[in-house]
Design a protein around this nucleic acid. Structure first.
Length: 573
DNA sequence: GCCGTTTTCGGCCCGACTGTTTTCAGTCG
């Protein structure tokens, strides 16, 4: 059996959670959590590193002990230390700490005093009125527990970026319209462009003494107020999205934004750096003793700890602070450097707009080119085009291109990669195309090396340019296909092929960590909205976010090239 | 349990809100 990084990280998280219930040294607990986070962000599999005999303690947050434990997990599939702990604390208890208001201390008390081990036990005890008589609990806590269980409040609930953006922008508009408000920004993982959003963190600055919090918590968009203070509130919107709102004075905007943007790991690292320099950082500013030396802007905060500005997408404590220190931060690719979109559909296959409508919309966005990549015929469900229909589309593109000034439609196709690695179009029609996006839409479950071989065989075809949505995952719906990504990327680089970063909010494929791996391996990437309508051309900014999280610069992205340079690159020598 | 521009030992980010309490522990972000 193969042990994946996620399995190892999950075991460390479980151990951390159990140790927390057992009231162990909080810093030891943090060490396990830090390690789990490191492991989840690794692009390569630890099982491979173990096989190669690599020294795992060279990884950040992994010391001698954790390196040994990782080897143990890879070899046995188990972690003895975790098994030892579960003799005292049943694993099921961990589920209970997910309920709001129930942390390790209270869960432990419930277990010891009432032998409560599951959500079911907890519900029965609460209904029987046994909870509120325990020390540290009360009537309200008991009622809240029942509510939380009924509302399935402990379940993970993350939303796609497009949904978060829609809900967030609408709410932001309302907040900006409230009296006394000077500024409002969505911070948190949304600002860092993480691939999904668990809640919206909104920072508001307003004039002193304004009754903003009353206005906000009584807004019709708000379904429920979870907590409410003078500077901080948590609410649930009708859409089900949780909003954490923080109010500060205008002069605290920079330090507040930095604090509220996170990530937590980045903030901790920055604050530790500040301590070493004899400073203290909180949301109100950077302090030297009693004296406040920065806080109005984020630039000031970074400068106070001797660093240049770090873009939000980089703030994950994945080396950005060290890079900033060395003045080696990437100059991240920006929207206005994207000269065209390399993946979209028209109504010839499963899109909603005509070629002309797609072209005009792309031109209006300032693009120089747009590749029309309707499906090939293997994908029947999407009305894929056979050679005959595609040939007619290519003729139409020729006619349309004569109308445009400074803009071109590129002749293309999203070609299915068949099970044996051949392409779903004949060579004579492939030769007429400017480029191809080649994708897998079936046989997702092949073994890892077989799936990798399939794609590399496809890349051997001289018409292969871009591997579309490489992992095929659908966030929350379908797992990624199993690939040897390092071998695949190396093969792509050696053949002059590219990998896509797909902008559909459910795909975001490649992920940020694989973008970064591609950059390190020297493979260039193609950003594609995969738009199925003119409006969805805007999805470009979603894949741009992942690209930026993956440290990509304009030179790493082929659609930053002029049309002439791009055409040259697409002709594989 | 990790880590080192003070350190191989002694630190480890920081503050707000709630509920149950009479001064704070627990939880959360």
């Amino acid at each position: 059996m193969i042990t994946h990084n996620e399995d190892i990280a999950a075991l460390f998280d479980q151990l951390a959670n159990i140790l927390e219930i057992e009231d162990a040294n909080p810093f030891r607990i943090r060490a396990y959590r830090n390690a789990a986070r490191t492991i989840r962000q690794l692009p390569q599999e630890l099982s491979e590193l173990v096989e190669q005999g690599a020294d795992l303690s060279e990884l950040p947050t992994i010391g001698k002990d954790l390196a040994r434990k990782i080897v143990e997990i890879v070899h046995t599939g188990n972690l003895q230390a975790l098994e030892n702990e579960t003799r005292n604390v049943p694993l099921a208890l961990l589920q209970l700490t997910r309920l709001p208001g129930l942390g390790p201390k209270r869960v432990k008390r419930l277990f010891q005093e009432l032998n409560i081990k599951s959500e079911d036990d907890l519900r029965k005890a609460a209904q029987a009125g046994k909870i509120h008589i325990l020390p540290g609990f009360g009537e309200q806590t008991e009622a809240r527990i029942l509510e939380a269980i009924a509302a399935h409040a402990g379940e993970e609930h993350r939303v796609y970026l497009d949904v978060a953006e829609q809900v967030g922008r609408r709410l932001l508009d309302r907040i900006l319209g409230m009296p006394g408000v000077t500024r409002a920004t969505i911070a948190g993982s949304y600002r860092r462009r993480r691939e999904t959003v668990g809640d919206l963190d909104i920072l508001v600055t307003c004039q002193a003494g304004s009754p903003f919090m009353d206005r906000f918590t009584s807004d019709p968009e708000v379904l429920e107020v979870v907590s409410r203070g003078t500077t901080r509130s948590t609410v649930i919107l009708h859409s089900g999205l949780q909003v954490d709102l923080r109010v500060l004075a205008d002069e605290n905007y920079g330090s507040g934004l930095h604090y509220f943007t996170g990530s937590r790991a980045h903030n901790i690292a920055i604050r530790r750096r500040a301590i070493r320099m004899g400073l203290k950082i909180n949301e109100y500013g950077v302090f030297k003793g009693e004296k406040r030396i920065a806080g109005e802007t984020e630039e000031q905060v970074f400068k106070a700890v001797g660093l240049p500005y770090i873009e939000p997408e980089l703030r994950e404590n994945r080396g950005e602070i060290e890079a900033a220190q060395r003045k080696a931060l990437p100059r991240l690719v920006k929207q206005d450097q994207i000269l065209g979109d390399l993946h979209c559909h028209s109504k010839a296959s499963d899109g909603h707009n005509s070629l002309r409508e797609m072209a005009l919309a792309a031109k209006a966005l300032g693009y120089r080119y747009l590749a029309i990549t309707d499906h090939s015929s293997r994908l029947r469900i999407a009305h894929g085009l056979d050679a005959k229909r595609l040939a007619r589309q290519l003729d139409e593109i020729d006619r349309l291109n004569e109308e445009f000034q400074g803009f071109q439609l590129l002749k293309s196709s999203e070609v299915d990669i068949l099970e044996d690695g051949s392409l779903d179009l004949s060579d004579d029609i492939l030769e007429r195309l400017d480029l191809t996006v080649c994708s897998i839409h079936f046989k997702f479950d092949l073994p890892v090396e077989q799936q990798t071989d399939r794609i590399i065989r496809a890349m051997d075809h001289p018409a292969f340019n871009i591997l579309g949505h490489p992992s095929g995952r659908l966030i929350g719906e379908r797992e990624p296909i199993r690939l040897n990504m390092e071998r695949l990327m190396t093969a792509a680089r050696d053949r002059g092929c590219f990998l896509e970063v797909n902008g559909q909010p459910k795909r975001l494929d490649l992920t940020d960590t694989y973008c970064r791996m591609a950059k390190e391996l020297g493979v260039r990437l193609a950003l594609g909205s995969d738009a199925h309508s003119t409006e969805q051309l805007d999805y470009m900014h979603f894949c741009l976010g992942q690209a930026r999280r993956g440290w990509l610069e304009p030179r790493d992205v082929i659609n930053c090239l002029s049309l002439t340079d791009l055409r040259r690159l697409l002709k594989r020598a």
